[in-house]
């Protein structure tokens, strides 16, 4: 299961500057594990002991995974995952 993961500017130090990387896994948790094996250090920036960090938003095909099944959200081939820091609006 290969998925495309969009990396925000602030985390590209882990991906040698790449904006989009590929990763494998059948759930978001496994995809993040796979990302960590390819880009060591990145998982710690995404996760803390409670799960996704407060200021990190992850979207599966544009839907916030917190409203899907969180880290257990199933991921299918050709899905797109976007990681973004939380920012203000208004």
């Amino acid at each position: 299961m290969a998925v495309e993961v969009r990396i925000p500017t602030i985390l590209r130090t882990y991906t040698a500057g790449e904006k989009v990387v590929s990763a494998e896994g059948d759930s978001l948790a496994v995809v993040i594990q796979d990302l960590e094996s390819r880009h060591p250090g990145i998982a710690d920036r995404l996760l803390d002991e409670s799960g996704l960090r407060r200021f990190i938003n992850v979207y599966l095909n544009d839907e916030d995974v917190r409203f899907l099944e969180g880290l257990q959200t199933p991921v299918a081939d050709a899905d797109s995952i976007t990681i973004l820091p939380a920012v203000a609006g208004g």
Partner: peptide, 15 residues
């Protein structure tokens, strides 16, 4: 991307 140009993640913001 400019808008997400934080210096570090602790500058993220949730109202």
């Amino acid at each position: 991307e400019l808008v997400y140009g934080l210096r570090n993640l602790s500058e993220g913001f949730v109202p």
